[in-house]
Design a protein around this nucleic acid. Structure first.
Lengths: 213, 213, 213, 213
DNA sequence: CATGAATGAGTCTTCATTCAT
DNA sequence: TATGAATGAAGACTCATTCAT
């Protein structure tokens, strides 16, 4: 996961120190701090100085590691979205039937919230800005790809008769997606609810509904 | 403290009363503009100048109507939250049984999104800031009161046997709440989905689940 | 005192209402409010709105009575300074000997503080601004005229042998002036010290000094 | 709260230490400029831009050194008031008799005006604001402590018989205080009056009074 | 790598003043 | 006389970013 950042030219400006991965480590640290703050206060509400303060350096010094605040956001997002899409794709590929695939998608979503609450929160909270901000079009694109996976499985389930045919898959997808990802707002990785248990509870209702009859 | 208008004669919406001495009509106009922008760009990302520009005046002139940007936010929120809580309370009071009450709560929620998409979006997007911002504690309090209503009806349904007993009501409430309110992100009042239809679809899944078996 | 304003063309714009002195009365009221605030918070720190609020009208409405904030200050000052200079001049004229004149000047100064604490405070606090502000040169000029009176009597006293010859009259004048007028900072017209008593105490030290020997 | 620098190593004034890593040298420079302007135009009338202009930087850049305009005022004041109180206390402690102590207090006051005319002027002019401004209560407190020193010595002198018993010490203290400190309004450090001479003149009148008899 | 100083554009807010009604 | 709405200029402060050392 920390190996992410696929696509960008590894940065190591003035590539003096051969191999030089210690710089890269500091970079990850700073990225973690930034992510935490972005998630907590929001991207726009987090100042470069907030990040630097937390890291114990001056704000100007951050620019030795990143060329802009936006670059940090970009990197955090890619590190989260790329593997997520990859995993969803794998789930879809490997699944045997729609029920199984859907359940696995759900379970992995909750697992992702557990593993990267900060990135998920960031993604959730800043969604609207990504549509406006040039350079972040890939976020929307990734979202669309993920959506397609879910819609495909939902439709397949309807076709095969396991999912009720009278629901609009688009609406249903959105209900599911929002219910799941919004979880990040209250889920605490070390809280009383385990992410697997949350997934189980969610699937309980999703499968059979709330009514007993 | 920043409550402002509470007590004033409700502004006679849709200028029925002929004489129309207007009262704080301009104020309402400006508030509408502000709400729209707050909802679209986010509160912090909306500048006072944005609002003024949209209104065709200078930014300083806004302060003739409001004492601060925050006051606008406050007023917009109260005008949305107070009636919402009132309505939810009434639904709980008048409902005959848990199923009926729950359904009505759901339907009214979607109706509220339809009627005040801007306020709902604002509420959704800025939730985290309200917990930090002094003077906005009532937002959290109102949220708690609403939560209590939903939890009460869910528990009552479990007790009476109409709702399945094996789900955690707290988790279920959150799933429902988030699925519903997140709708505001894509719902368009004049789009192809009518809010009643969305509610029906949601209830379909909520009642019986997605699986046919 | 309220008859002051000598020099300006009586203002009564649109001199419709014959005699119309009721307007002039409101004017005095407003002037009183302004003076109070100017003295308490300082001229620059007092906003036109502060004055209007205190008067129970809107700030724009003040401009029916005065053409500017500065005009208010000007009028307040003239109403205080003109009579003061007049009185000092009279004291100098009528006095029989330097001791008597000096004492009377001192006594009247304290009486003026008692009678117009607000104007005195204003004069004291804004002295520096008057030197910079165009249109207020007469304040400095009046100050100079008053200074001349005091210096004359001090010199006369030295010449006649009643005042010690080894003090610099300019310095002494400043000491006296500052000690007296600064009184306004703590003197309360209805407090425990009567202005006559304060004058007596001051003269006690001024005449014979603090030492017993 | 706004105390800031207390605890830091006094800035090594007059860059003795060779290496001159400067510490907050720039800060001191800026503080000097601010003090000058505050004293001349008044605190409220001095804009942050005035200070920045004088320093040859942009107004926003000042915030690299100070967190607010108020912090500058605070620092200027503390740097003046703390040593002043210290010195007054020392004079009281070391003095042998009331006459000597009083004279020394007077002389040091004039010396302080000579040494820090800017701070004294600031203190004099903004006294009223300090009572209102939260965070500046220490100014009033320091004033009270100084007052206590003077009152103590005046009372002691009356008890020992060197000071006349028929004067109210509180009034007398105020007369003395105001006459001395007001000096700052006209005293020029490089003018024709030396501060020692001014002190002598003042003491002349204070000791024996103006009258020859 | 990091500091310390600065930039420049922008943010919210204030306030004396104007003017149509 | 007063209101209500607005202007326009200014004020304190913020913040991403740059750069010499």
């Amino acid at each position: 996961m920390a190996a992410g950042r696929s696509g960008q030219p590894a940065t190591t400006r003035r590539g003096s120190r051969a191999g030089g991965h210690s710089g890269s480590q500091r970079r990850s640290e700073l990225l973690g701090i930034a992510a935490e703050l972005f998630a907590t206060r929001g991207y726009a509400q987090t100042t470069v100085r907030d990040i630097a303060d937390e890291a114990g350096i001056l704000s100007g010094s951050l620019y030795h590691h990143f060329s802009s605040k936006e670059e940090m956001l970009d990197e955090i997002l890619r590190e989260f979205l790329d593997p997520l899409l990859e995993r969803f794709t794998a789930i879809e590929k490997q699944g045997e039937n729609p029920e199984q695939v859907l359940d696995e998608l759900v379970r992995h979503s909750f697992a992702a919230i557990h593993a990267s609450p900060v990135a998920v929160a960031l993604y959730q909270n800043e969604l609207t800005m990504f549509s406006r901000q040039p350079g972040f079009e890939y976020v929307g694109r990734t979202g669309k790809k993920i959506e397609k996976i879910w819609l495909t499985v939902l439709k397949a389930g309807q076709k095969s008769g396991v999912f009720r045919p009278d629901v609009d898959v688009h609406l249903t997808y959105r209900f599911i997606r929002d219910a799941i990802w919004s979880t990040v707002r209250w889920y605490r990785p070390r809280g009383k609810y385990k992410h697997e248990a949350v997934a189980v509870q969610f699937l309980l209702v999703l499968h059979g509904g709330l009514h007993t009859a």
